[in-house]
Amino acid sequence: MSIFVAVQSDDFCVASEYDELRRHSACGAVVTFSGLVRELSDNTLHSMTLEHYPGMTEQALIAIAQQAQSRWQLGAVHIIHRVGTLKPNEQIVFVGIASAHRAAAFAACEFIMDYLKNRAPFWKKEHTASGDYWVGAKASDQQALARWE
């Protein structure tokens, strides 16, 4: 299995990542997820800053990809997570899975996103009209993770 992990400030191209995943000839399915910075319900989000520990973060993402590979037969896993200051509707995360079968690709993509939301060492600060706030863990994210444990 091929694992590609990147933590970067630069944007990424979903089409290019998809093309890379398609190169795995034994794969009959490619599933991708691209997450965006979303507006708050009251439309006050100006930007979000993401921080991480270089080196430690990449190792955590590799470990998450390896966990997915141990559960499903996967040909390739690509994880890209952006850091720095991002504005609403900018891309923040990409997860791509190439697998022989779609069920494994869909499941692995969901698994990785649930683990990224809960276990990856990223810290998010929202910059809003009423001030700056660190984003805490959400119960719904923890519930999503619990289904895999």
Rank of each mutant, 00 (worst) to 15 (best):
A65I: 00
E39D: 15
K125D: 00
A120I: 10
Q143N: 02
A100F: 06
M113E: 14
A104R: 05
A105L: 14
S2T: 10
D19A: 13
L50F: 14
C109Y: 03
D11A: 14
A144I: 01
I62R: 11
A105M: 14
W148C: 01
A65R: 03
E39G: 05
L145F: 06
E20N: 12
P54W: 03
I112M: 07
G131W: 00
A65L: 01
V14E: 15
E17F: 07
Q143D: 04
A76C: 09
R22Y: 07
D19S: 13
V93Y: 03
R82D: 01
S47Q: 06
E126M: 09
L36W: 13
V83A: 02
V14F: 04
A105P: 00
Q66K: 11
E51P: 13
A98M: 05
L45N: 10
P121D: 08
C109T: 12
K117M: 01
L86W: 09
G131D: 01
S34G: 04
E20Y: 15
K138L: 12
R71T: 00
A98D: 07
F12R: 03
A129W: 02
K138S: 09
T49D: 09
A26L: 13
H46C: 08
A139K: 05
A108E: 11
F33T: 10
G84Q: 07
S25P: 04
S2R: 15
F111C: 02
V31D: 10
V37E: 05
G75I: 03
A129N: 07
Y53V: 03
A29I: 15
H46I: 14
Y53K: 01
A137L: 12
S47C: 11
F4R: 14
I80P: 01
M56R: 11
H52C: 15
H52F: 04
Q143C: 04
N43E: 14
R147L: 06
M48V: 15
H101A: 03
V77Y: 04
T49R: 14
W72D: 00
L86V: 05
A105Y: 14
V77M: 02
T44Q: 13
H24Y: 15
W123I: 04
F4N: 10
G28R: 10
H24E: 11
I3V: 12
S9Q: 14
C27N: 12
V7A: 07
Y18D: 13
P54M: 06
T85Q: 12
M48A: 14
V135G: 07
D132E: 09
S99R: 12
R23G: 12
S34V: 10
P88R: 07
S41I: 09
I3K: 05
H81K: 02
L40T: 15
A108Y: 15
W123N: 05
D132S: 08
S130W: 01
A146H: 00
Y133N: 00
Q142R: 15
T44L: 11
K124T: 09
H78N: 04
H46Q: 15
